[in-house]
Design a protein around this nucleic acid. Structure first.
Lengths: 85, 85, 85, 85
DNA sequence: GTGGTCTAGACCACA
DNA sequence: GTGGTCTAGACCACG
C-alpha cells in the first residue's frame, strides 16, 4: 500500500521504476554476499509484503535479475542466487 | 477528431483552451458537490470518450485540477476529489 | 497447520477427507440456495483462511464440485455456481 | 472476452500459454514475410482486441518476440520487425 | 506454498 | 495514441 519500504533515495538519479529499484536492491545484497550462491531469495509473496508492492512488480524485478544472470528460478521451488554469481 | 463534444457553453468564456474548459467543468461539479471528497473522478478513458477530447487534453485538465488543489492523483489507482474540497 | 477449523460437524461423516468435507459444505450451501446460480464462490484464498485449510485442499474441493457439475470455473475470473444448479 | 480468436489448435502439443501462442502466430507471420523488416506490428491495443486477450498477455508475447530477436520496440512509437529478421 | 499465467484497468512518459 | 509501469487479485501447475 505504501509506495515503498525501499530505503529513502537521496540521489537524484533515482527516477527508476519501482521494479528496477527492487532488482537493484536485491542485486546489491547478492553482490555483497548477504545472499549467497545457491541460497533462495525471499518468496514473491514475502517480497510483496516486505516492500509493499504488487506481485507483478516483484516478478518484473525477478525477470530483471534473471536477465542479468544473477538468479535462477525453478518453478514451484523458488528463485536462487546463481552459482557463478 | 477532437472537436469539442463538451456540453454547449453559453458563457463567453469559450475562448479558453479545451483542457481548461474540461478542468472548469469538472471543478464546477466538485464545487457543486456532484463529485464529493474522496470520490474518484471518471477515468481518463471515460473522460476522453464522454467529451470527445484527446488523452493529452484530459491529462492537462487533470494537471490543472491538481495545481488548484481540487484533486489528488494516486498512481495506478485513479484521481480523487481532494478532502478539503 | 491444516487442522480443521471447519464448523463443528455433528454428523458421523467426519471420517471423510478434509477436501471432501469442504466440498460437501459448499455443495450444501448451493443446494440450499445460499449460493445461487451464476454467483461466484469465495476465492481460494478466502476459503483457505475461512476454513483453515491448505490451498491444495481447497483446489481438491473445487475439483470435486466441478466433477459433480455444481460449479464452473473460468480461468482468471473465479469459480461460479453452475446455472442448472 | 472469448479466450481466443487464435486458430483452432488441432495438435495435441498446444498446451502452450496464450502469450506463447500469440507470439508464435506473429513469429510465423514474420517468417513467412507477411510482416516485413522495418514494418510495425499491430499496436498492443489492436492485438488485445483482435485476439480477445488482456494487455499483459500481449506484452508477454511481445517480450517473447524481442527475446527471440524478431522485433524491436521503440517507446511511444511501436514495435517493429527486426531488420536482420 | 512456490512460481506461472491471465484478467481488468488505472496512470505515466513520450512523440 | 504508442509503449511503460503499477495495482489487485483471480486460477493453474508443480512439488
Amino acid at each position: 500500500m505504501c509506495v515503498s519500504t525501499l530505503p529513502p533515495m537521496t540521489s537524484p538519479l533515482n527516477n527508476l521504476p519501482l521494479y528496477r529499484q527492487l532488482a537493484d536492491l536485491l542485486a546489491k545484497q547478492i553482490e555483497e554476499g548477504k545472499l549467497r550462491p545457491g541460497q533462495p531469495l525471499p518468496s514473491e509473496l514475502h517480497l510483496q509484503q516486505t516492500y509493499g508492492v504488487a506481485r507483478g512488480t516483484v516478478r518484473m524485478a525477478m525477470r530483471d535479475l534473471r536477465d542479468r544472470g544473477l538468479v535462477v528460478t525453478v518453478h514451484a521451488r523458488g528463485t536462487f542466487v546463481a552459482e557463478q554469481g
